[in-house]
């Protein structure tokens, strides 16, 4: 097995070096921005945008205004610097989301596609009595190495997320949930397995790269769509004041009738309310209704990640099984 790993690393050294360098660069940049954000040491009183409630919408005002004038000045200065680094972090994390996809395509297509293109498949498939063993050994080992390399930027993305929102535990927040942590690794492995299958079917690397890119984007869109639908089944009604855009997934904002306990949509409430100064009477609404939000609470983030990871893992197994079928039945040229 040691020989197999050594030869695989040597065979795919260009891909592994490129992916490792990209991951190291991404991790380094994320850690650098983390240190920048941490160095600003934004006081808790200044972190008024950390937990914006549903009721406050996207307002950037603190719940309790800062009374100390010197602190206000300090807050402004630090908040501007913090915001600058935060914006850079957001851009970096977006690039970080593309990295596993590109890495998965780059090496996934090569695992079988290059063997077919260069003719080495005929050598390997006659030396090895079992194509199944040949395929599973290389597909699983290369996948494991790729997953191991991708762990680093996925981990540092979590660290950066915590630096961007110091008052929030990234493990209990849906903010940037799809572009950090284990989901990032799994998306890389998903595109890797799509690349393996496409390479095995097409047998040419360049066309396989293009096809894999298109298939991977479709797969990710379908996955995100499916996850969104599934997440909505976890949603629960909560008082709007206790829900946060930065932590939870807020699906809907409505009112609960205090008398009947029924959920009523905003339009119906505004129509029912007496009109004051050309608009609905807020005091009347507050007296009769509670503002509520349908949310997937951030506390469910771990559960969602576990299910997402499992779902992608299942898709990986199906795709690798499909690749096995193709390898067993196709000609080597």
């Amino acid at each position: 097995m040691r020989t197999t790993i050594r030869l695989l690393l040597k065979t795919y050294r260009f891909e592994f070096i490129a992916i490792t360098l990209a991951c190291l660069a991404m991790a380094g940049a994320e850690l650098y921005l983390t240190s920048r954000l941490d160095a600003l040491a934004l006081p808790k009183e200044c972190q008024f945008d950390q937990n914006i409630s549903v009721e406050q919408g996207f307002a950037t005002q603190p719940e309790e205004p800062v009374s100390d004038p010197t602190l206000v000045d300090s807050c402004q200065e630090k908040a501007i610097a913090f915001s600058d680094s935060d914006q850079r972090s957001a851009v970096l994390m977006s690039f970080g989301a593309a990295l596993p996809v590109l890495a998965g395509i780059l090496i996934g297509v090569a695992v079988v596609g290059r063997e077919l293109e260069t003719g080495t498949a005929s050598l390997a498939w006659t030396l090895s009595r079992s194509r199944r063993r040949w395929y599973l050994t290389r597909a699983l080992l290369v996948g494991a190495i790729l997953g191991g390399v991708l762990l680093l930027p996925s981990f540092t993305a979590n660290i950066l997320e915590h630096a961007r929102q110091p008052l929030i535990d990234p493990g209990s927040s849906f903010n940037d949930g799809g572009i950090r942590g284990p989901v990032l690794v799994m998306l890389g492995l998903l595109t890797y397995s799509i690349g393996v299958v496409t390479g095995a079917v097409v047998g040419r690397q360049l066309p396989a790269v293009i096809i894999t890119l298109a298939l991977a984007l479709l797969a990710i869109l379908a996955f995100e769509n499916g996850v969104s639908r599934w997440e909505s089944t976890l949603a629960e009604w909560q008082p709007a004041a206790s829900s946060s855009y930065s932590i939870d997934i807020v699906l809907e904002q409505d009112y609960r009738d205090r008398a009947s306990g029924l959920i009523v949509d905003q339009g119906s409430v505004f129509n029912a309310a007496p009109q004051v100064d050309g608009g609905p009477d807020g005091a009347w609404i507050d007296a009769h209704y509670d503002s509520v939000a349908l949310v997937v609470p951030g506390s469910r983030y771990g559960d969602v990640v576990a299910v997402e990871t499992g779902a992608i893992g299942a898709a990986l197994l199906v795709l690798l099984g499909l690749g096995l079928f193709v390898v067993i039945h196709r000609r080597p040229d």
Partner: peptide, 26 residues
């Protein structure tokens, strides 16, 4: 034992690597 029409050796691997590869495959 099969020898194909076109030499199909792995680019970037040495001759010794190919001997080791054959040992690991067969």
């Amino acid at each position: 034992g099969y020898v194909s029409q076109k030499p199909s050796l792995y680019r970037g691997l040495t001759v010794a690597d190919h001997v080791a590869l054959a040992g690991s495959l067969r």
